[in-house]
Every structure is written in C-alpha cells, then in structure tokens.
Design a protein around this nucleic acid. Structure first.
Lengths: 202, 202, 202, 202
DNA sequence: AATGAATGAGGATTCATTCAT
DNA sequence: GATGAATGAATCCTCATTCAT
C-alpha cells in the first residue's frame, strides 16, 4: 500500500538469528521499562518484526524474559571464565574477579537492569526459575572461596555468605558507577577488594 | 441474586483505623504478588471491605503502595532509633545496628519483600519517590561512619560505599534466614560484622 | 475534631428551605458540567451539606434534575405571565413576549443551560418527562397564535410550527447574547420579531 | 468453560471496512442512548466484534464519537452540495436547501440524534471540537444569505441570525416529522420557507 | 434530621495471546 | 514462516446510592 514500506521485505531468517534479534529487542525494552510495563508489541516494533513472530520463537512473554536472562548469564559466565587462575595471588584473584564482574555490568548496563533489578521482583513471580540461575552463577565463586579456606589462605567463613558479599559489593560498584558521579570504578573496586581481603584474611 | 451476603455488615471506622486496616491488607497482598501483579480488588477482599473504600482513603494504587513503604520505613526507623549510642564500642555499635536492621526484616518479612525486593523494579517505574526514601534511611548510617572515620576509629574509606556494604550484608543475612536453612541469623550477623570491622579497622 | 469546622453547625432547616438550597446548588453544578458529569457529591459540597441530605429530599439524582427543570419552568412562566395582553398590538405582543422569554434566559443563563441544553440530550434518556414540560410551556404561545389567526390578524399557519419558530428565535437571541459579541439583544429581538411578523402577517 | 462459542469466527477486514462497521455500530448505539450512556462494550457487541478491536481503530470513545459526527457532516455536505444554484429563484433556492437539509435528517434520524441532540450537551463536555464542526457547516449558508443581500434580493438582515433561523426551522421540520403525526414534512417545509421569505424579502 | 463513610456495579482502556491471511 | 488484526479477560478507578452513627 505504501511504497516506502516496500523496503521492509518480509524476510525469512534462520531460527537462531531471529531469536537473537528478538532477544536484542527484548533487552532494549525490558531494561527500559521493567518486565510488567514492557509490551510484547513494543518488543516486536523494536525488533522491526511482527508480534506473531515473537510467539513463533518464544512461547510466552515470560519465557522470552527468562531466555534473555539466560543469555545474560551466559555472557557473564564467558567473561568470568577468563579470570580466576588459582596461581594468582589472593589480591589478584579477587581483584580480577570483581573487575570482570563489575565491568561486565558496567559495559552492559541493560543486562544489569534486566538481571539484577528484575531479579528480586521476579522471585515473587517465577520464584525458583530465576533464583536457580542466580545460584548457579554464584556457585563457582563459592567453590573458589572454599578452596582458599582449605588452602588456609583465608579465615574460616561461611563461603556462601562470603560469595554473596563479594557479589553485592560488585553490584554496589556498578550502581555507583551507573549513577555516574565520575568514574569511581577503579577506586571502588580497590576499596571493595581491600575491605573484603582484610576482612577475611588470616 | 446473592442471598448469602447477609453476613457482612457495613462498619464505619475512624479514618485512622481504616487506613491501618487497608495498609495491613496491602502489605499482605503486595508482599505476596509484587506491585504490578497485586490488584486493588484483592487488597479490598483481603481487608474485607469494598473497593471504593480504598479509594476513599488513598487516591491511587500507587499512592497506597508509597504509603505502605512509608509505614515500613517508619517502623524500621523506630526500631533503629534505639540503637546507636556513640559510647558503644565499635564492635557493639555495628553489631547492634546490623542486628536491629536484620531482625526488623526477619520479623517482618512482608516488609522486606515490599521495601527491598520491589525497590529496583520500582526505580524504573516511580523512580524518585521510592529512591528518595531509600536514600533518606541510608543517610544516618553514612553519617555514623563519617564520624567514626573522623574519630580515627576506622580507616579512611568512602563512607557511602561502606554504608551500602553494611546494608547489603544485612540483606544477605535476611535473605539467608528467610530461605530458612535453620537459624543462621546469629552466626551470620557475627560473620558480617567481623568481616566488616576487620576490613575497615585501623 | 477541627476547631475551624465548629463554625459549620449541623443545622436543621424546614424542608422547603433545604430543598431550595439544594436546587440552588444543583443549578450551579448541572449548568456547569451537564447532567452526567455532575456528581451528587459536588452538589452536596456546593450546598455545604452532606450527601445524604440530598437523598432525604430527592429520591435520586434524576428526580433532582427534573425538580430543577420544573423550578426553571415555574420561574419562566411567572415571568411570561406578566406579558401577553391581547389588547396589545401584534407588534407589541410578540415583541414583549420574545423580550420576556429571551431576557429571562439571558438573566438566568444557568437555567438556559439546564433547560435548553440538556433538553435534547435528556430526551434520549428521560424522554417524555422532559418533553412534556416543554410542551406544556409552549402551549400558551400556541393558543395565542391560534387566537390571532382566528381574529384574522395573521395568516393561516400551523400554530404549533409558528410557536416553535418563535421559541427557536428567542433561543438564538439568547445564544448570540451569551456568546457575548457585545449586546446584540435589542437588535436581535427587533430582527426576530420583524422577520416573524412580516412572515406571518396578512 | 464456554463451549458454545464455536459459532463466531474471527474475521480479518481491511481497516476501512472495519472502521465503517464500527461507525455503523456507534451510530446505532450513540443515537439510542446518547454519548455518556453508551458504552464501548455495547458498540462492540452491536458490531459483533471484540472491544479491543474498537480501540485498534479509534484511540478513545471520544474520538470515535467525533469521527462519527464527522462522517455525519460529510454525508450532509454531500447531500447539500447538490443544492444551491445561484440561478435558482430565491424561492427555489431556499426551498431546495431546506428540503435537502431536513430530508437528510429525516432519512437519517440517527444522525439527527447524534449530531443535533447531543450538540448542546457536548458543548459543555468537549466544547470546541464539536462546535467548530457546527460552525463550519453553517458558514456556507451564511455566505449564501450575504450574497442575496448584496444582490439586493433580500432585506438587510444579520446574515448569521438569518442562517440560524433557517437551520432552526429545518430542525423543527425534522422534529415534528420524527414525532410522527403523519407526514407533515412537505407542508412544514412550505410553511417555513414562506414564512422566512416573506419575512426577509424586500 | 443530617452526615459522610462504605459499597460495588459499571465503565474506559490495556495487552498477552491467537489465528486468518 | 511471518504478519498484525482481532480478541476479551483483566485492571484501575468513579460515583449513585445506602446506612451506621
């Protein structure tokens, strides 16, 4: 009907690419408005595709959201994988760990919003689903700490508790950075790691 | 049509009592389902009153939620007021502070859900209103830390950062407790305070 | 509870006075917002009384509105009663009739809004009730015209049609006046009567 | 839960047709109950479609009503366009004008109710929007009268006033006809035009 | 008699999901 | 496969009317 719509051909893409496109759009919209306030319509528009297409690839808005969170954790995991070499000094290990974690979210603030901000609200709704993911990603850290304890490098401390503290500190770094009072990142990471290390070292 | 409604007598209450009733019901529902998924109808049913009554006392769902959060901060403040005596030792001061904070939420898990879990999602929705409240309640803690620094009792550290760490630790205590693997509270609080103090003390 | 509310004592008034008060308030509100958009609440507030009191004196919002329209027609009738003396010349008679009619509404624009503007909208809803009133007040005019015809003073013309035309012209005068392009009243009335008379005179 | 819904198939229509369908239904409902008492639900039911479909095509109830009124004026304009040839005699011109106008509404009494009866109530509600439309449609008539005056065919008379009188007369014809005391139309139109012409001719 | 708190049916609008094209 | 029109349950809020005080 409109000639300038002729440009946008209905294109058939391989399922993978389509899914990625949709997840990109979902990231944009969910991070902007939160889960409940995001319309599937808006996501489709953002992706430049029809609403029905989203439902061909994801069975529901909720599942789409979960897939997005999963992708986030995947990316985060990849980023973290590079990090913890046990031959690092304690200092180095924790600093590098926190740097990777914080930097990932600072560089991907949309994922921060989707994965962290929605997390608690989500717990009320999808409960387990989201929490399980969070647990899963915290586990490596817990293990690392356990090892350090076994090695006698740090005090006996509940390793899960310690892992949560580290994660929380990282989030604080991110939030302060995103609130943008200049680049507090470097300083904050040092502060955090120092505090933590002094707090747990023998 | 409905004959079995004779039971429910209409009761007139003083505005204060009504408001409290409604807030009680709102606490129940909001903490159970989160803000967006709670509907005013459900709150009315929970309160055993008509929907219109809620609107007589609160101009909108949002304002009702805010009023509930306010009541929460009020209760928390009262609980915290008893705490910080400067002549307390550092140990005592921080332990008692964290105890009060964590215990308040452990004893009032519904407020925890409403005040803490909704907070980030709310940031995207109502933004300022909620965050201002959060800031306001963190401030005293920031000041306390500043004083300790000035007194030379603890290391120079960004006081806001430190305050956030303490608050986060408290939340971790609460969450672990609510996830109910036995009463980890006491141990966790000790762990947290020890970690923090060793981390910041000179 | 509030001392400055002490002024407004709950006063018991004779039913008549109360009714008048309420009708005054109703005139104010209905003329301002139209029937559907006027809240009984607003009327009560305008009257400075409780909502319940209105229902003690009028069984429903609708009946209150009708009572108000009735009072309007009563006032209009009184104003018109002074007018039509058959010994007047034709000119005089019609001019004075239209003057009285138009002036009544120009001086009581709120009644104009309530009686004229709502009239058609109302016809859809209360149907007969309102139309009957309108008919009743047009009748004298119809009779007058019939007499003039019988007297051979004016052409044979459907007297109801003629009466409607006169009433409509009067409304036009009022509307133009209320739209306030200076005082067109005098000129318009002359125009109207001249047009009508020339139109119907033998 | 509902098994007997199988009958109603979902039909996809081009936007134009859908809009027309909805406007048809709206005409039916609005003319029956007036604006405020008509609910969107009823219009959807009348159109045999879902409520949401209406909102896909019209952004709000109000805009839907306005669109309906616009369609009415469009139809009326088309009907009137056929009319005024300046070479017509005065008699002919006015008679044919009034005939067209009155007949349009007599043949489309629903439009009469929507466009004319709601008009005054609407003035209080939407004000400008509706009134502007009314003005626009009166203007050609005003101009026609001005021309006749300039041509010296009729007396000097306020042309807007005269136009209003003609429009009012036409409405009277319509109303008398709709109240259905036999077909008074022809006679009434003659009466009206005669009255008017004698009233204004030199 | 007067009050205004309480009620709940009703109404406009949104949006996840379905399905005809 | 892709599309977006269609759907209607769900939701917030209003307001005429009732009734405890």
């Amino acid at each position: 009907m409109r000639e300038n719509k002729a440009t946008k051909k209905r294109r058939v893409l391989p399922a993978n690419e389509r899914k990625e496109m949709i997840l990109d759009a979902a990231l944009e919209i969910f991070s902007r408005h939160g889960y409940e306030r995001s319309d599937v319509d808006a996501i489709a528009r953002q992706a430049g595709i029809g609403k029905g297409t989203i439902y061909r690839h994801f069975p529901s808005k909720q599942k789409l959201f979960l897939a997005l969170v999963d992708r986030g954790y995947e990316l985060l995991k990849e980023r973290m994988k590079l990090v913890p070499r046990l031959r690092d000094s304690l200092q180095q290990a924790f600093r590098r760990g926190m740097e990777s974690h914080a930097n990932f979210f600072i560089e991907n603030p949309k994922y921060y919003r989707v994965m962290m901000l929605e997390l608690p609200d989500y717990r009320l709704r999808i409960g387990g689903d989201i929490m399980r993911r969070h647990q899963r990603y915290i586990q490596p850290l817990v293990k690392g700490i356990k090892t350090r304890i076994k090695n006698g490098q740090i005090e006996k401390i509940d390793p899960e508790f310690a892992a949560f503290v580290l994660a929380a500190m990282s989030c604080i770094v991110v939030e302060r950075h995103l609130r943008c009072k200049g680049d507090t990142r470097r300083k904050d990471i040092k502060t955090a790691v120092d505090l933590f290390l002094r707090g747990v070292m023998k």
